[in-house]
Design a protein around this nucleic acid. Structure first.
Lengths: 160, 160
DNA sequence: GGCAGATCGTTGCGCAGACAACTATAGCGA
DNA sequence: TCGCTATAGTTGTCTGCGCAACGATCTGCC
């Protein structure tokens, strides 16, 4: 565990490195799959839809520009466009014209959307606590949050 | 930071919890997207294909049962079946009958697959180091690995 | 031996998402 | 004012994946 910090022959990962990396992949995959299934089963709401509604609720006037929404939920504009189609069809949100920019459009939470979100949120939060947060001490949570914050710039700026 | 450990009104996440959770989502998404793009651009090899080849190389005789392979790379059997179709078409692996179980099939790495994997591996490892491992101290890596190991059972067993 | 149920791999089908192309509009410089 | 370029949102098209169904085979029990 205290072998000199050679980053290995660049050819291989040490078990420690491997654990840190692959572990995240596995945990993320398993966790999101479980949470998505739970949300879908109990509220008929896929995880991505849930996240859209959540961002809307947190936004001013419960509405956001399509564009911003897309980057918030990490979807392409086309992907978001169709997702919003579905949510609008289900009455969970509504499109609104944008006065300040005639090209643009808002997505705004409807009362029904707010309601569905509130129910789903309880389920989802409980899931996150049960499967994730409850396993971590406060210090660990703090540490994780710090790590993520440090990592984000690193992986975005990597032009290579 | 040292407020009593009330898990919040179960209604909301504290900023610390939120950072630990959403941070992982964002980092994972950004990172895998970047790594996948890099792999695809330089070697024409999507990330999932890379992982299949990697598991094969690490396996005995460089071959694995379809079934085990599927669960290793976290894909459904049908998904893996088609992925293997593509890789076989590209000559990176070959299907082999299984003597011990006539239902089964092996996927085995071909020389070309080994070769492509070796090149891709260098790229991929460099990427992981640049965007992930290099930002973490050894202690942090150790800690992360520990956390993931603790989390996995928790999220699999959550029957709810 | 022979049957019942489980398991392996493949296939038909449908869905969600990405990319590229398109339209409409904004913003800016000459 | 007139372009020229950038941006917002939508749509056509393609790809990758999951679910369910299927045939083939294995396993266990009678």
């Amino acid at each position: 565990m205290t072998s000199p910090t050679q980053p290995a022959p660049a050819e291989l990962l040490t078990p420690r490195e491997l654990g840190a990396w692959r572990g995240m992949l596995r945990v993320h995959a398993t966790l999101t799959k479980a949470l998505d299934a739970e949300l879908e089963a109990r509220h008929g709401l896929p995880l991505t839809s849930y996240e859209v509604l959540l961002f809307l609720q947190e936004a001013q006037e419960e509405r956001m520009r399509m564009c911003d929404l897309a980057s918030s939920v990490l979807l392409s504009r086309s992907g978001l466009s169709r997702l919003v189609d579905r949510l609008e069809r289900d009455g969970l949100l509504a499109r609104e014209a944008c006065a300040a920019d005639a090209r643009g459009a808002f997505a705004r939470l409807t009362p029904k959307g707010r309601e569905v979100l509130a129910e789903a949120r309880a389920t989802h939060l409980a899931g996150i606590r049960a499967m994730f947060l409850s396993q971590l001490s406060e210090a660990e949570q703090e540490l994780l949050a710090g790590i993520w914050e440090r990592l984000l710039p690193a992986c975005c700026s990597s032009k290579s």
